Computed example of a mutant assay.
Amino acid sequence: MFSSTFIFKAGQYDDEFHRLDQQIAEVARTTPGYLGEETWENPGAGLIQNIYYWESEEALLQLIKHPAHLEAKSKQARWLDGYRVVIAQVLREYGDGGLTMQNPPA
């Protein structure tokens, strides 16, 4: 499994931001190999994290190379006050079964 974590500080959003954000989320969720996602906020630091989980690096790369993602990346300075992305290979996942990943595939 792979994860892609998008960490950002929100700036000023507009209609174009919301359109692209929704489009990218839909593309991710319909990409074969998508496993789910989680979102976290740190209000004190003003940071937001979107974490997507993928079966393979190839599945993740489908989103990274999608035109909507490339467009948003090229325009990010209009909407964000900074960002970074962490791509990781997940070695293991475990727990007591009481928590499941948000938005698992249907």
Rank of each mutant, 00 (worst) to 15 (best):
E55S: 08
Y34M: 10
E41A: 11
E57G: 10
A45V: 09
Q49M: 10
D21Q: 11
H18E: 14
K75I: 12
I51A: 08
E57Y: 11
G36V: 00
L63Q: 01
N50V: 14
T31F: 03
F6S: 05
S3E: 13
S4H: 10
T5C: 10
Y13F: 15
A25M: 06
I7G: 08
H18Q: 11
A59V: 06
Q49W: 08
E57I: 04
E71N: 01
K73R: 12
G46W: 12
D21V: 01
L20A: 12
R29N: 01
Y34N: 02
E58L: 09
E41M: 07
G11Q: 10
E16V: 08
Y13T: 15
K9M: 11
A45S: 07
P67E: 06
E55W: 06
I48K: 13
H69R: 03
F17Q: 02
A45E: 11
F8G: 12
V27C: 00
H18K: 14
N42W: 10
G11R: 06
A72Q: 08
H18R: 10
K65M: 04
K9C: 07
K75W: 12
Y53H: 13
H18V: 07
A10Q: 13
Y34E: 04
Y13H: 15
A25D: 03
S4R: 15
E58V: 05
G36K: 01
Y53W: 09
S4N: 14
I48Q: 13
I7M: 11
L47M: 12
P43W: 13
D14Y: 11
A10M: 13
Y53F: 14
D21P: 02
R29E: 03
F2V: 14
G44E: 06
E58P: 00
F8Y: 15
Y13G: 12
W40T: 03
Y53L: 13
A25N: 07
F8V: 14
E55L: 07
S74P: 02
H66N: 07
Y34L: 09
A25L: 05
R19Y: 07
K65G: 00
